[in-house]
Amino acid sequence: MRRLLWLALLIPVPASAHLVSTRFGEFYAGMLHPVTTLGHLVPWLAVGLLAGLQHSALARKVLLLFPLAVLAGTWMGSELNTAAWVGIVNQSSLLILGLLVVLARPLPPAVFSGVVMIHGLSHGLGNGATDLSGNGLLLYVLGVTTAAYLLVTLLTASSHQLVTRQSWGTVAIRAGGSWIAAVGLIYLTFTLLAAP
């Protein structure tokens, strides 16, 4: 039962921009939305772990690519009705990113960039706030983008340091990836079983 409750926390909820006390403004509402939704938070952490496993030049790319993809996605998700495939991609991202972390292989730059951008875009779309406009929307989108930048930068640097400085670093990160992949598999199975 307890595990099911944890799994329920992974379900991404539509961004109403009122998840947390909105007195902190739309910028902070945007920052807190992905951070307080495990369905967004965990895959973002996986992006950081995956980037940390790549060589420095490629790892640095994620600092720019991921926030930009999230920015574009959140903006589009706020302006348009989110397509059904976005939910499926977001739900699958736990499994896909988790498995890529488990494999711990250096990826070709094009593949790595593609993976980062697709997931950034789809999670950005999932974070769209259709009830906002004007300055409120601008601040909200910037908030989500800032959260993406902060999380991915910290995680990429930490995991990269772990991999390059500790002999057990790669093993630890692969273990983390296996947990993410396992949770993703269970979550996806539940979702598919629940589908009509």
Binding site: L63, T153, T156
Partner: peptide
């Protein structure tokens, strides 16, 4: 602390 953590991250990645 958040700024310092980000400074460290950028330094670590030579960004």
């Amino acid at each position: 602390l958040a700024v310092l953590a980000l400074l460290w991250s950028h330094r670590a990645l030579q960004a």
